[in-house]
Amino acid sequence: MARPRGKILLIEGKRSDHPSFFSGLTRKGFDVESVGTGKLASERLQTSLPDVVLVDAASMRTSGKRICQSIRADAPGVPILLVVDADYDHMERLDADVVLAQPFTLQKLLNRMRPLLPTDDQNLLKVGPIHLDVEHRWARCQERQAQLTPRLVMLLRALMERPGEVIERTDLFRVVWETEYTGDTRTLDVHVSWLRQALEEDARHPRYLKTVRGVGYRLDVEPKKRK
């Protein structure tokens, strides 16, 4: 018997005009437990912790804010994926790791859920708010998530392995393109620009991927302090 891809606690209401995620996730190999209210979810979290809590607030005609706050109090380490109606207030602060607005496909739900699930630590790099799954080629920073090309994975990995350090352009060309030739500097600049578009909230004024003029680039994230 195949091992489940992950354990999901699904909180959703019963609406005839709103399809359930239960059957789709079950078909994809997830171990799904469904409850109808936030209160029942809190009770369930007292005895068993899932890998992800999926809150379908759209099916309950609510923002899901209070449910997410309750889950955070009961199980602070469990990630939350919140589904809301298309017209929800984007300025409202919702206590969830990922917020998905209807409509969307099951595949998009899976893509956004994947970074929240347990993975092989050997293939997952974490530096500050940036997560990189080398095997599946996705990266996440805060609420932003993107699928990356193999070259972009190599570039981001090179920067993440030396956080806070200025990495010279020649070193990046050597690692990512396996060449000593740096005549075509625009190639590197374009790839850094693509990474910024994927991860930065404002690509024109990057917070993390900084240019050190005349030298190279730096991932402006504090490295972990050794104990």
Score class of each variant (00 low, 15 high):
93 R>C: 02
7 K>V: 07
199 L>R: 08
184 D>N: 14
90 H>E: 11
145 Q>C: 08
18 H>F: 01
149 T>E: 13
24 G>I: 04
185 T>G: 05
206 P>Q: 03
199 L>Y: 05
25 L>Y: 06
112 R>H: 10
54 L>G: 13
218 R>W: 00
213 R>G: 00
22 F>E: 06
82 L>G: 13
92 E>Y: 09
216 G>D: 06
40 L>I: 02
94 L>N: 11
205 H>R: 08
191 H>I: 03
121 D>M: 01
180 E>K: 09
17 D>T: 10
9 L>M: 13
192 V>I: 15
48 S>I: 12
203 A>S: 15
204 R>F: 01
36 G>R: 02
220 D>L: 09
83 V>M: 04
40 L>H: 10
94 L>S: 10
171 D>M: 07
66 R>H: 14
112 R>L: 03
154 M>N: 13
87 D>G: 07
38 G>R: 04
226 R>C: 09
117 L>K: 07
100 L>Q: 07
81 L>V: 15
175 V>Q: 03
72 R>G: 06
220 D>S: 13
128 G>W: 09
203 A>C: 11
2 A>G: 00
5 R>N: 07
98 V>I: 15
197 Q>S: 00
202 D>V: 09
73 A>P: 12
196 R>Q: 05
213 R>H: 05
96 A>W: 11
91 M>Y: 13
69 Q>Y: 06
113 M>I: 14
55 V>L: 12
95 D>E: 14
51 D>W: 02
139 A>D: 05
178 E>R: 14
216 G>I: 05
184 D>Y: 04
152 L>M: 07
31 D>K: 08
19 P>A: 01
113 M>E: 10
184 D>F: 06
118 P>T: 12
174 R>I: 00
107 Q>E: 09
23 S>Q: 08
81 L>N: 11
63 S>T: 15
85 D>W: 04
84 V>E: 08
93 R>Q: 10
158 A>T: 06
54 L>V: 15
132 L>F: 04
225 K>H: 14
39 K>D: 01
16 S>R: 04
107 Q>F: 00
143 E>G: 04
